[in-house]
Amino acid sequence: MNPKDQNKYEEPNMVDTPLHHPLDDLLRTDRIPHIWCPGCGIGTAFSACLQAMRTSGLDLEKTVMVSGIGCSGRGAGYVKLDSYHTTHGRAIPFATGMKLANPDLNVVVFSGDGDLFAIGGNHFIHAARRNMALTVVCVNNFTYGMTGGQVAATTPYQAKTTTTPRGNHEAPFNLPLLAYASGATLIARWTILHARDLTECLKQALQHSGFSFVEILSPCPVNYGRRNRQSALDMLKMFQDKCIIQNNASPADLEMDFAKRIVLGKFVHVQRPTCIETYDKTCRLADFSKGKAA
């Protein structure tokens, strides 16, 4: 064979040869193309989550994904597992019901900041307080992306949105601190730029026996970035420049301020009895032993 021919680059036949994504077996490919905008970080977060699911050793036959409403809420629709797309803010109570009905299930909540911490905020603090054995993955894009970029409970101070054209005068949540104060037993924050650390952390979160919470910072170039003169790349550059990794940092030191620095890492990883364990201990087994004694 002519060595020249060997080196000849062959154009892949895009029409006849379907290109496979390595996670195709976990995706409802019939629903692709997805709705996420160019430059959006949810796809990376979702991909990290699926990759972590695959490598975590969890029985995927017994794994379900629950989402609320919003761009990240589409996750449940794209994963080829049993999944539930709930009403706005109610992903965690749906997930709680599933876990209580069938404690053998691995229940993953994949949703956005608006869904989990504004309209559904109450459910988050109570699931964390109970140490309900769920993995809550929150894609934080600092805005309500799906409805066009309104101010959210996570929008940085002074950021511009469609409902705060002159800048947000409110302070955003420090989500890891909220999770810590509420009683979550695994708490971490990464960005989509830190895809490997994120995937590894999600794996640990999935394997964790109690309530685990992973916040994933993500650009929303179309509905958040555009109004703040930040392209998707600008935001990633900021993730690179402003983020420092500090595992076990105090949750009180994790406020979201891009003017200073953003701390990433795994901040909390402790064990305490889960809701189902304490329930069984207090209500089920106690009754059973009493019955036996009688």
Partner: peptide
């Protein structure tokens, strides 16, 4: 609170 189609 934002909800389609009211938001605008």
């Amino acid at each position: 609170y934002p909800i389609t189609p009211q938001t605008p």
